[in-house]
Design a binder for these strands. Structure first.
Lengths: 387, 387
DNA sequence: AATTAGTAAGTAAACTTTACTAACCTACAA
DNA sequence: TTGTAGGTTAGTAAAGTTTACTTACTAATT
């Protein structure tokens, strides 16, 4: 528990004021005082501090009230006070961006991962960040730090990627490497946690307290927020939906589609669908191609995909039974097949779960990882404000 | 977020001191100051307040340090300052108790539920509480309030039991009834939440941050604590393990063992086992009797129970995959068959879950519900201390 | 003599209350 | 139409309150 002293009070109240201003986007000192039930002089003093530190800006007068009186001085949150770098390390591409404090992506770059993975990955990152800094005409003093998302098991305390098959990393000291490259505060986490944080901060999960992000791609994974906080689990392995068992008998005989894969991802991930359809039709097909065949009514594709989606839907329905979230957000490679998946999930959930839950598609495009990484950074950063 | 002012600081620091004393059970002012890094005078002032309010007692001098110096004055938490009433309303028995602030059950009573359910349930409660008050020679001023656990769906905000089949209650205004009977602050919740709170406060889940309590009885239910807080879910229905689907194909054909029951409790609860064995052997048998037959090696019993426990174990393994708790506590009517269940769960979890998790038996006997109800009350009660 | 426990007196930092000035609107009379 | 009185709101200044901290002390012990 936090120990109480004067400085702590002040920080708390400053945070409240910032939060207040961010919610209202233009508000007067008097209105803040009323809203927070703090006295007007207190608000004045704290606002002056915040103005001096450039967290806030005075943006001219508002209009006076009907009953007369002096015009209020409007205060606005200064989103351009500082910037944050978000890095989304994917198996295919590395996405990089610089956002302002409102989560607006001011600059964005992308480069293919595998091309640089072996020799100059971090130099390439540095080059891109420098180029974005030039574009925005800012220097390092304006940058609070860097958040990064990793497609694999990450020990966030030690700052080490335990294992990331897509990058062929094992016990890779990611934080140390990034610190060496950038000399800025760094926070990292795995990609599903990044995504759920992003959706909660700026996406479709805004203002929700309990949400789940399910990523369906090569594997199946998920990130959880509870009471507005990321829940990582005792061993940092909460949300491993890919390990759910949705069929007792079938599970007895299953073989992991890749080494270390759980049951559900072995029967319903993209790679699983691809592998099954390939075996069935005797020719190499991707999951995307399988869905195309499905839409054409191909019998083999329908059988494989229906089975896979049923397992997936039961997994999600089980999630709802245990967690009772406000919303479930589906991401990963589902964009093309969302409506199909959605229908299946709603059917199964309706049949088996004790109550319903909204199921929606991710609200971001390729900038998702950047926004999420920035959300992670702000979430972990011991700064004045909180998101 | 909390607004900061002087009074809030003081409350915070008083709470810290109380927590400190409760952990150490005898500690001096100077030691508290060192531990909390607050100044000695601050501690002295706050301790004097706490002494005046009887939260603490001075219990004589400790021994001086090796290097010389004045003897410390020991401070102890005054667990007998106040008492709390815990009521555990079960389908068979109502358990009632009065505990001190340390969770020690100072008095306990029990009476059969159904006998009093229709006419004088609350009078009987009142009679028992009065008798316990006499026994302990305390009056209402010493009692902070009442916590109660309900075997059914409970809307804790409105204080209404939405549905409790074991009591034949539907939309029953439990809080209003208890307030009318006792004129004391009341908090209620459902029985699994009560149990997990109890285990966390005084049982085997002490000092664990993330824990799950699974109750296996007529149905199957569970309660969850995350980061030391009870997690109820968006619609107060988190932890509905009884609705998990553990077999896709089997689920297509299943029929709820009772109306409104989920898949898992329909195939693995006590009533399900009893119903299956009864059907198989053509004579009425309870779940307990089925387990006896199992131990004798009866073929039918082995088949039914093995199947049921496999489903249950997969459910629990799924829980571990999603939640990654520190510990899973099994309760309900499992006492006799715990080792059997435990083995099955560990096997399945070992096979399917991404990591292991301790699985243990509940640490309480028939006083479980009382301790849990008291834990609930203290958890919800806006008093000085927190547990 | 050195060390530890606890208290007293004065100071610093945060908030609040009260009282003020500045700026504005409405109503109404000339 | 214009001017003014009266009322209202925004923001600030000064004094007071509460809490914690620092410094300096006494008491008790090895």
């Amino acid at each position: 528990m936090q120990k109480g002293n004067a400085a702590y009070i002040k920080t708390m109240n400053k945070r409240l004021i910032l939060k207040c201003v961010m919610e209202e986007d233009a508000i007067s000192r008097a209105a803040i005082a009323k809203k927070l039930s703090l006295s007007k002089p207190t608000i004045s003093t704290l606002v002056n501090d915040l103005l001096e530190d450039q967290w806030l800006i005075e943006t001219g007068n508002g209009s006076a009230s009907r009953e007369g009186g002096r015009k209020p001085v409007n205060l606005t949150f200064n989103a351009k006070r500082s910037y944050i770098v978000g890095i989304d390390i994917g198996g295919t591409n590395v996405g990089m961006g610089i956002t302002d404090l409102n989560g607006h992506v001011c600059a964005f770059r992308e480069f293919p991962t595998q091309q640089h993975l072996e020799h100059n990955l971090f130099e390439e990152m540095k080059r891109n960040v420098d180029s974005m800094k030039d574009q925005l005409r800012i220097d390092d003093t304006k940058i609070l730090g860097i958040g990064a998302g990793i497609p694999g098991v990450t020990n966030i305390k030690e700052g080490i990627v335990v294992e990331a098959p897509a990058l062929k990393w094992k016990r890779f000291p990611i934080v140390a490497e990034l610190e060496k490259t950038f000399q800025l505060p760094i926070h990292v986490d795995n990609d599903v946690n990044i995504n759920v944080l992003g959706e909660h901060w700026m996406g479709i999960g805004k203002n929700k307290e309990n949400l789940v992000y399910v990523a369906i791609g090569t594997g199946v994974g998920s990130g959880i927020m509870i009471n507005g906080n990321l829940y990582r689990g005792t061993n940092y392995s909460a949300g491993e939906i890919g390990y759910l068992v949705t069929d007792k008998e079938y599970a007895k005989a299953y073989h992991p589609v890749h080494k270390g894969y759980g049951f559900l991802e072995s029967v319903s991930s993209g790679s699983s669908i691809s592998m099954q359809i390939t075996k069935k039709l005797g020719k190499e097909l991707s999951a995307k191609q399988a869905f195309e065949l499905y839409n054409e009514g191909d019998e083999a594709a329908v059988e494989v995909i229906d089975q896979a989606l049923e397992h997936l839907a039961i997994g999600i329905s089980n999630y709802v039974s245990l967690f009772d979230p406000e919303i479930i957000i589906l991401g990963g490679g589902v964009s093309g097949s969302f409506s199909l998946i959605h229908k299946k999930v709603m059917d199964i959930m309706n049949r088996y779960a004790p109550q319903q839950c909204e199921v929606v598609r991710t609200s971001f495009g390729k900038e998702a990882g950047v926004i999420g990484s920035v959300a992670l950074f702000l979430n972990e950063f011991e700064g004045l404000f909180e998101i």
